[in-house]
Amino acid sequence: MNRIVKRFADLKTSGRKGLIIYIGAGDPNLEATRQLALAFDKAGVDVLELGVPFSDPLADGLVNQLAAQRGLESGTTTPGVLATVESIRRESQIPIVLYLYYNLLHRMGVDQFIEKAAAAGVDGILVLDLPPEESDQYGQWMTRAGLCAIWLVAPTTPEDRIALITRRAQGFIYYVSREGVTGMQSRVSETIGLMTARIRAHTVIPIAVGFGISNAEQARTVAASAEAIVVGSAVVNRIAKLGKSAELVPQVSSFVRELSQAIKA
C-alpha cells in the first residue's frame, strides 16, 4: 500500500490529526535534508513534503523563494533530490511528497520522472502549476507507478472544479487556505471550516490545510477542521536562520515536535 494512504488510514484508526512538514530540498545542502527527514520521522511528522528547487518559483513567497535559491546554490538538482529520497528510504518509511514546478518533470520526460521518483521511494507528487485540465496522461502515469497525485484546492476554486479535482485526488487534498503565495501569517483564514466542508461533500479523501500556519496555536485551530495540516515557511524560516550550524537538526525538530504535540494531544 502507498505509504501516504497507509499513514492516513492509521491516523483515522487512532483518531489523530496528521502533520505535514514542507522543506526546500538542498537547503542548506542535501545531507542536511536527509538528516532533517530522519529527525522529522522521529518527531511525529506524518508526511514530508520536499520542495525541489526551481529557478522561477512563482507560487512561492519570499521565504520559500530564498530556500530554492539556497538549494540551487548548494548544487541541488532534481536527480540529486531523488538520490536523497533513496538514501532516506534506507533508514525510514516516512511518506514523502515531492512539491515542484512542472518544467522540472517536463524536462526529464514526465513519465520517466514519475518512474524514477517511484523507484527512489517517493510516495506522491504535487505539481504547483499543473492543473487537472493539462494533466490527462500525468494522472495515468501516476496511477501506474503507484504514486499519489496530490491536487490543490484554493479559495477561488468553484464547486464544479472541486468535483473535478476530488475525482482525481489520491492520498489527500491540499487545501490552500488563502489566496496568495506561500508564507507565514499572523492570523489564519477564518473561512477554512466552510471550505473544508464544501470539499468533504465531494470526497472521503483526507483534507490537509496549509499556507500560512506558523505556530502551535494556529496549528491546533486549523487542525480542528481538517485531517491534517501543512506547515512550510515557518520551518523553512528556521532552517534559513540556522543554516549549516550544528543546532540545525535539533532546533528544527524541536519546533516540529511542538507542532505535532499541539495537534495530536
Binding site: A59, E134, W151, L152, A154, T156, T157, R161, E179
Partner: peptide, 18 residues
C-alpha cells in the same frame, strides 16, 4: 483550451485557474 498545437495552454497554480 488555448493550445496552439503542442504549445500554449494554462499551466498555473490552482488559485488562478478560475
Amino acid at each position: 483550451a488555448g493550445h496552439f498545437g503542442p504549445y500554449g495552454g494554462r499551466y498555473v497554480p490552482e488559485t488562478l485557474v478560475h
